[in-house]
Design a protein around this nucleic acid. Sequence first.
DNA 1: CCCGCTATTTTTAGCCT
DNA 2: AAGGCTAAAAATAGCGG
Lengths: 230, 230
Amino acid sequence: MTRKKVTLAYIPNDSERKASFKKRKKGMMKKVNELSTLCGVDACAIVLSPYSHDPEVWPSPLGVQRVIAKFKNLPDWDQGRKMANQESFTKERIRKTEEKLRKQHKENQHKEMTNVMFQCLAGEWSRSFSFYGLNEMGWFVDQNIREIARRINSLKEEILPHQGMTMRHGMSSAEIVADTQIASEMPMNAMQNYQWNMQPTVSPYGLGWDPTIPSYGYNSNSIGPNFTYP
Amino acid sequence: MTRKKVTLAYIPNDSERKASFKKRKKGMMKKVNELSTLCGVDACAIVLSPYSHDPEVWPSPLGVQRVIAKFKNLPDWDQGRKMANQESFTKERIRKTEEKLRKQHKENQHKEMTNVMFQCLAGEWSRSFSFYGLNEMGWFVDQNIREIARRINSLKEEILPHQGMTMRHGMSSAEIVADTQIASEMPMNAMQNYQWNMQPTVSPYGLGWDPTIPSYGYNSNSIGPNFTYP
DNA sequence: CCCGCTATTTTTAGCCT
DNA sequence: AAGGCTAAAAATAGCGG
């Protein structure tokens, strides 16, 4: 799917523009609301569009008039300064784009290195996983079950925060999991990171997971469910 | 790191509030700019804050006055309709939260099922340690390798989009994977989902997972991978 | 057309300097 | 305090019902 990055320019297509307008107006008004609420400042916004006969405002027609009144009462205001006009936004965009270019370059170099290292790892792993991968995998599965149960329970607590133990009738996941045999309490965060944070590595802001950190190297002699081979 | 979800309420701490103000004002103004540019509508915003002596406006003092003029010239406007006030935003938030609650519930049920199934699988697997289990696990591991390889290749495409096959010199991940024995083509989506989709569960507007809530009732006896100890 | 979905982009909270 | 950073949260483009 292609969710294009916005190019800041008038949207020629009518229906597209209208759709965008509706979504963005809502979002923008929400932002005004948040700014005003969170930071306790007076603010207002007015939108005059062909999509509605009436002006669309925040926080309310009266609120707008109140802010406008204050705004107009402010004396001697150098109209040139402190304003946010299109030009300044454009400049900001150029600055950011150039910044991005620099970062991209750096990131590319980094990715190539990661790429190479990863191949080494993967090769090693697939060659030997039949033995020493199994214990890890078993432990990993186990950890996942625990994690799920933990989350389910957290969710229940959240959803039924003040009702105490109201879910006795079904078999709760806590109960299910209470039956689970946990072979080890020892943390294996690195492995979880390996599994769950793999994806981020691939895209944003450089490297998520750093393959050079040796912490994932569990070998099977120590940790996790101890499989015995018959 | 803890990047808190925003709770829509006045920020009591002075420096925090100011920091938030500066960031959010910028973001908000940007949104107004985008709305106006993308959709070709007249819009303006005014912010009166203790952080600046002068009002901060978009698009410019004159632009604001122009919009205000249009706004005031509009006759017979039912002031009650079409306005975006705090109440409507609050209602929207409530709606969304309730929606999320419903979804969460559904998802929980799904997870519990997956949980149970997974335990069965894992238990069965480790109990017999059969070839069958090995194959499945092998397949699973293999899938992961393939996925990794796929991502590496995507990256290569990204990094070297127009250079064709420029990386012949190293062993490509595709080649690595070609060496891997694929035990079965049988779909195991459930397992992948289990692995990869677990995390997103936790979500915004009050339904997030709270790490401060202790996890309950896992004691370490019983189900799960039944490992045999020598 | 309008609504909901989700992949992707954009914003921003909390840290750090 | 003012800016940069990054992971998490929020907005939204494009799609399908």
